[in-house]
């Protein structure tokens, strides 16, 4: 039997799940994360640690950096990558996403179309990373976990996220269309 024609294969692996299914799953994972680790879900804070570990690997030191100055942050860095729950979760997200596209046989290495695309991606990544750190979180840690914790800050983040997206889409149409 051709698995590509199987109803269950199509439903579970091939076709995209609906937004409602995604929302329910994210909520369940948020509840599990909070119950098991005692902290709400965050993604980009972990990446700051990855940066610190990479920097240490090439001989740098972040001991004097204000961002990593707390005892907790130092302990996390000393314990290392493999003992850091958030790092394992981020790895899981990356490998899970890869697995999902492989199961759907939709894996493709995309061409880079122009230098403009590279420049925009690098600029966007730097701005998002920097913004997420001085904003104490990204759209997961600050927005999603913030609102889920009944914190006003999550809603403030949402308002400015919306304004930023409006400016961003105007720039996108101006430079990429």
């Amino acid at each position: 039997m051709d698995i590509r024609k199987n109803e269950f294969y199509k439903k579970w692996f091939k076709n995209a799940w609906t937004y409602v299914v995604g929302a329910i799953l994210l909520s369940v994972f948020q509840i599990i994360t909070l119950a098991v680790t005692g902290n709400p879900w965050g993604v980009s804070g972990v990446l700051a640690n990855w940066g610190a570990w990479l920097y240490q690997a090439v001989g740098g030191s972040v001991d004097k950096w204000y961002y990593f100055s707390s005892e907790g942050a130092q302990k996390t860095l000393e314990a290392g990558f493999w003992n850091h729950g958030g790092s394992m979760r981020n790895l899981g997200i990356i490998f899970g996403a890869l697995l999902a596209t492989l199961f759907a046989s939709q894996f493709k290495i995309k061409k880079i179309k122009s230098k403009k695309q590279v420049l925009a991606a690098v600029l966007g990544g730097l701005l998002m990373g920097y913004g997420a750190r001085i904003g104490f979180g990204c759209n997961i840690g600050a927005l999603y976990s913030g609102i889920a914790s009944l914190s006003l800050s999550g809603w403030v983040f949402a308002l400015f996220l919306f304004l930023g997206a409006m400016v961003g889409s105007k720039l996108l149409v101006k430079f990429f269309m």
Binding site: K110, K111, I112, K113, Q117, S169, L172, F176, M177
Partner: peptide, 8 residues
């Protein structure tokens, strides 16, 4: 539109 991401 190959290699282009949403909403391009």
């Amino acid at each position: 539109a190959l290699g282009e991401a949403c909403p391009v």
